[in-house]
Nucleic acid binder design. Sequence first.
RNA 1: CGGAGCGUAGCGCAGUCUGGUAGCGCAUCAGUCUGGGGGACUGGGGGUCGUGGGUUCGAAUCCCGCCGCUCCGACCA
Length: 438
Amino acid sequence: MRLSHAFIPTLKETPAEAQIASHRLMLRAGLVRQTSAGIYAWLPLGLRVLRNIERIVREEQDAAGAQEILMPTIQPAELWKESGRYEDYGKEMLRIRDRHDRDMLYGPTNEEMVTDLFRQSVRSYKELPQILYHIQWKFRDEVRPRFGVMRGREFLMKDAYSFDIDHGGAVASYRKMMLAYMRTFQRMGLKAIPMEADTGPIGGDLSHEFIILAPTGESQVYYDAAFEEIDYLSGDSFSHEKPDDLVRFFEVMTGHYAATDEKHDTARWDQVVADRKREGRGIEVGHIFYFGTKYTKSMGATVAGPDGRQVHPEMGSYGVGVSRLVGAVIEASHDDNGIIWPDSIAPFKAAILNLKVGDAGCDALCERLYAALGGNALYDDRTDRAGAKFADADLMGHPWQIIVGPRGAAAGTVELKRRATGERVEVTPEEALTRIGS
RNA sequence: CGGAGCGUAGCGCAGUCUGGUAGCGCAUCAGUCUGGGGGACUGGGGGUCGUGGGUUCGAAUCCCGCCGCUCCGACCA
């Protein structure tokens, strides 16, 4: 993409409404624009990040054996009346009425709808387990939306739902999803810690939330630094496929101390080795629940068991705040100059900074690099001064900057800057491309 | 939902107390000079002062209603 014609409206000054770093930077770098309280339009740069996060979430869900579907945003009230949540959910649910006066709602979550899909089609225990997920916009009419996309009313969520024939199966699905989550967050460069949580309005008796540390987090958290050393991705870590691995994995996850304020246990906390104690503010980026037959019973979903009797499958649900993660990653990774994207979700791998547009050498070299990098590069071909380009590139946070100036162009070199470290090296264009890993 | 604040040009703000028909910086447009960390100069464009009503000869300014946004707290992917 050529910056001169891209819809990436960067801001030199911070809009007054933005209080926290991620919100400020998302507005300044031109990722989003607010359309009303807690509701945002995603602009090209922001959308690319959102899609990248979505892609990682999707890959890890697929790897864990979950199957992607897509349920609608608008749901009929009847399903929620069946489960009893139509009354329980309160004002956070946006209730609407269609032209025939039918009660509808904009889905805040999808347990009812997925249970309905399931009961229509699954008849036998032999078809279990099933894990279904979708990545869809949700609406929760929060009393007080804030922190930009981190606490919006409309937000993109990956929600998955597992169906198992018995408690043991449900627990296995729960662990499988937990592992998928740890892998997902690690791939985004986040250290997420699973913490025991209350089950809230979804109900049930086993629940973990996944929290990343950031000064602007909404809750106080405590955990054992042992979590920081665990690698979920390398070949010899844990496998979804091996039941033993999942048991071992879950033991590790629940073996170290980790708790939010509400669940904090000072007696257990005191037992954590002093130099491994970590505490601070945390942002919730995911939440998983096991709730058994809460919905299969209330909504009459059954399958035939091995003995021929009808049984209510055991369910769990698993949410990742996809749009929230965009803000959360920025909270975890930025400096005074702007965003520092992890390579895995950066909107572009590299920015090409043409410091002297119009100089034949600079133009030719930049075009060559741009052609080689294709869609992975944002080419700053604006006629602005160098300083403005540096500032915008730092603000937008591309992992690499290829700086092309007239002196270098004449000598056949470019400067390669790594955003995260600020390190710059003078290399040949080919070497730059190799290092970026195009 | 309790408490507080703010709406004036695309963004950041002054002007409101003490009424006289709108200003600054940035951005933008044209031009000249410049050219490696948001450059300088000259000239230009852009505002029903959130909205409806009231008071007044006259309202951004005073009074009332409404709408929107933000912050603190309680609640949440």
